[in-house]
């Protein structure tokens, strides 16, 4: 995994550089016009936002119940990426909504739950920062509950009749929309994996430094 970091960063940087041209070449969507193009960034960010919640939750389960100390590094890395991609989602969403719905924000289930998930990530990082020694376990417990929100967000649009487009929209996209979308998705995913790797490696190295420091004069 770790070897992929550098090529992934380079590739995603290159792809994100090219992406505006691809997006520009894609045809205008009939009803939305120009503003629809933000979707090419909004969709990957939103999916990775949810993915980071799942990664964080699974890492926390491994840390809490299977005593895998290294899993904590992945939990903290994915939580911080959750904040980043959550912020991207929550900024690009209203930009589109202002044009499409005429308001920046509506309180529909999916938007609400995304905001809630973002708050959970924020609370998680705050707990890790200010919780003092032992907060890693508490944060892991918190992350478990946070992960529960993900299926709720994903399914919510399909159960409730809401303003947010359905999840079935994506697979039925015409090819000329699909190409730039999946191109951006691949770029974002590689960026996500690379950042996740870097941040987790950093956390693991910090843990190793702590361990070395603590082991320094031990038997």
């Amino acid at each position: 995994m770790r070897k992929l970091t550098t090529p992934f960063i380079g590739l995603s940087a290159g792809m994100l550089f090219v992406a505006p041209w691809l997006i520009n070449m894609a045809p205008f969507e009939s009803t939305m016009g120009l503003v629809q193009k933000i979707f090419y960034f909004h969709f990957p960010a939103a999916i990775l936002f949810l993915v980071s919640a799942i990664v964080c939750g699974i890492a926390s389960i491994r840390f809490l119940f299977f005593k895998k100390a290294s899993a904590d590094a992945w939990a903290i890395a994915s939580a911080e990426l959750g904040l980043l991609f959550g912020a991207l989602t929550l900024v690009t969403g209203p930009l589109w909504a202002r044009k499409a719905w005429g308001v920046w924000w509506v309180w529909d289930p999916r938007l609400t739950m995304s905001l809630v998930l973002f708050l959970i990530f924020a609370a998680y990082t705050i707990l890790r920062k200010f919780g003092g020694p032992g907060s890693d376990k508490l944060a892991a417990g918190m992350a478990l509950f946070g992960m529960l929100n993900v299926p709720f967000i994903y399914v919510s649009v399909n159960i409730w009749r809401t303003l947010h487009p359905m999840t079935s929209v994506v697979p039925t996209l015409p090819t000329e929309f699909g190409i730039p979308l999946w191109f951006c998705f691949a770029a974002f995913t590689m960026l996500f994996i690379a950042l996740l790797n870097l941040r987790a490696t950093l956390a693991l190295q910090q843990a190793r430094i702590e361990a070395l420091y603590l082991d320094e004069d031990e038997a």
Binding site: E210, L214, E218, A219
Partner: peptide
């Protein structure tokens, strides 16, 4: 046997 307890970098107990 060789018990140690750390709180962050603080060694409350070692060896």
């Amino acid at each position: 046997v060789d018990v140690a307890r750390y709180y962050g970098r603080r060694k409350a107990l070692s060896q």
